[in-house]
């Protein structure tokens, strides 16, 4: 497939060219906060090099808040209108490769099986994914421990490797060809190819955890003492799951607004007490231990059993942002290694 070079000073032209064919979704810079994925507009500063913490791209495909339907009532009359997003050709730029892989996990949840989610499907259909490989691997990444990352390549349409003053655009799917038609792109030299290969090798070996086969889904046990250890310090907030690119749990609520009713979907997480609270007052997960266990078992074991993919792709957001430093890498090490790893010096 035709790989291309995008000089960084031509990035703006490239995005404009894409904008003529697609709705362009990319991480947009915000004040004192991680960049957020949105449809870019005038005046938005796009961060394409993946060098900084960003909100997960699921925020675009599965918004934190979205109206599902509206009901309007007049005397003797009730009208229900679903509020579906448009199916437009879109391209999402600037996400890390593990984020792109996390979208595969979301696809399994929302598009496969008995029920296809029309809201997610509308945004996801005709959406191309372009991942970025930053010049420096992020310290918290452990992607290569969660899966064979070579298998991830065909799941995106292109990967942009940051080679300093230029991006190497590797086209990884047939439909990705449509992304590199712009005449401002150059042909890669053999040095560029070597630079790209070097970054890919780095990615493949970065953050590999010191346990042998990586089959943690076989080793995670329901009654492992690690759950009590995590639960003791876990404060039960939603940072890990709300920032996670593959966590997909949501809540649906109805709200009356004047003469109409709005049904909306918003984020929810297994870490909250009211996630499993029944109307009767009974709570099958009454304290933090089963909640902490649920999140990790779901990611690493249940989703693997259900869909054949591991729910965690090693993006490291929860590693970096957990308020009490519950490090998912350490958890896996402890569970999977024969003996505990040496403490960091």
């Amino acid at each position: 497939m035709a790989d291309k070079i995008l000089p960084k000073d031509k990035t703006e032209g490239f995005i404009q060219a894409l904008g003529r064919k697609f709705v362009v979704v990319a991480p947009v810079e915000r004040k004192d906060a991680p960049a957020e994925f949105k449809e870019i507009g005038a005046g938005d500063k796009v961060i394409l090099d993946g060098s900084q913490m960003m909100m997960p791209p699921k925020d675009y495909l599965l918004p934190r808040y979205e109206t599902l339907l509206k009901v309007s009532t007049r005397p003797g009359e009730v009208e229900v209108q679903p509020v579906l997003p448009d199916e437009k050709p879109r391209v999402m730029l600037g996400m890390w490769l593990p984020d792109a892989q996390a979208i595969q996990v979301l696809d399994k949840v929302f598009l496969e099986g008995k029920f296809r989610d029309p809201y997610y499907a509308a945004r996801r259909a005709n959406t191309m994914l372009v991942a970025v490989m930053p010049a420096q691997m992020r310290w918290s990444w452990f992607c290569a421990s969660t899966d064979d990352v070579e298998k991830w390549k065909p799941n995106v349409d292109a990967i942009m490797y940051d080679l300093g003053d230029r991006f190497y655009i590797e086209v990884t799917s047939p439909r990705g060809e449509a992304l590199v038609e712009w005449e401002g792109l150059a042909e890669p030299s053999s040095e560029d190819v070597a630079g790209k290969d070097r970054l890919w090798e780095q990615f493949k070996s970065h953050g590999v955890l010191p346990f042998s086969d990586g089959k943690f889904y076989e080793q995670l046990a329901w009654d492992h003492p690690i759950w009590a250890e995590i639960a003791q310090k876990c404060i039960g907030c939603g940072v890990c799951s709300y920032m996670c690119p593959s966590c997909s749990c949501f809540d649906i609520q109805d709200e009356v607004c004047g003469t109409c009713v709005e049904r909306y979907r918003c984020r929810d997480t297994c870490q909250f007490e009211d996630f499993t609270l029944m109307g009767s007052g009974h709570n099958p997960r009454p304290d933090q231990l089963p909640r902490s266990r649920q999140r990790l078992m779901h990611k690493f074991k249940y989703q693997h059993e259900q869909y054949g993919v591991v729910g965690c792709t090693g993006c490291g957001r929860c590693v970096e942002l957990c308020p009490v430093n519950v490090d998912i890498r350490e958890v896996l090490n402890k569970v999977c290694a024969e003996k505990e790893p040496e403490p960091a010096v």
Partner: peptide, 24 residues
């Protein structure tokens, strides 16, 4: 408007100890 309602601020706060928060 940036808030994602993860409630980390409330959960980490030693003085936010209500058994059921008004927000829940």
């Amino acid at each position: 408007s940036k808030c994602i309602r993860c409630y980390a601020c409330r959960q980490i706060c030693p003085n936010c100890y209500c058994e059921v928060c008004f927000a829940d």
